[in-house]
Design a protein around this nucleic acid. Structure first.
Lengths: 123, 123
DNA sequence: GCCGTAGTACGGCGGTTATCGTACGAGCAC
DNA sequence: GTGCTCGTACGATAACCGCCGTACTACGGC
């Protein structure tokens, strides 16, 4: 599987992380990645931040290792891009890629998530 | 769990099938239901048909029991509505409910699925 | 060099999923 | 009634998932 290891913003000496190329991203995989409340939360937070966020900046009610797991699922399925900056691991939504492949999808999912959380009175 | 058993179009004497009420449908559940190639195919076929379809009318490369399983997942997660007509089980997308809960989402998923299948040269 | 912080790798646990085959039930046609 | 077709129920299996804790590595500051 061809990988995109040179991520813009990555520090040269950093370890490389495997990402699927744009044309390898599959709809079912993306939906699967989004079909978990914890990961949906990550994606929403990332979208609201409109930029790159440290892993630790996104508070989740799970252990560190579970956290790593969810971020990896999102990355390996093409939803986010990750790269190291010092000891920190930065995360960014692959907005452009997803928008090109599945126009409007991510926006609608984010909007639906927002609508639902309002409806359920969770905030 | 409140259930909507009296489905429009169902023959009176038929067995009832449990469906989640509109307000019980969860985004993560819907995404999970759609995050399977087989089920995505069912939903696309159903959307293309623009009406109700017999279970057997949707050809899938899996056994009958697996088929039943996938239809049940879609129903229990609020994506489709099912009811009996004679020996046949009819299926219909819950377009109105989904559109109200998650505006634009289903259309985008269907469009994305179509785009992807073209891109992959699968038809 | 030493230590703290950020995150990974690994192994395990319990629950769920996708698949199948076989046996059964419900309605229709005869 | 008999038989046909459509779909269900059940049990089994193999894979996967979400979660955890522990032990480890990588980087930056002192």
């Amino acid at each position: 599987m061809p990988t995109d290891t040179t991520s813009p913003g990555a520090v040269p000496g950093s370890r490389a992380l495997a990402h699927p190329a744009r044309e390898e991203i599959r709809l079912a995989d993306v939906l699967h990645a989004l079909a978990d409340p914890m990961r949906l939360r990550i994606v929403c937070t990332l979208a609201a931040a409109e930029g790159e966020l440290n892993c630790a900046d996104i508070e989740l009610p799970v252990s560190k290792s579970t956290c790593t797991h969810h971020f990896r699922v999102l990355r390996e399925h093409g939803v986010i891009q990750q790269f190291y900056r010092g000891t920190a691991k930065m995360n960014r939504l692959r907005t452009a890629d997803l928008e090109e492949l599945f126009p409007g999808l991510i926006d609608d999912v984010l909007r639906a998530a927002d609508l639902q959380s309002r409806r359920l009175g969770e905030r």
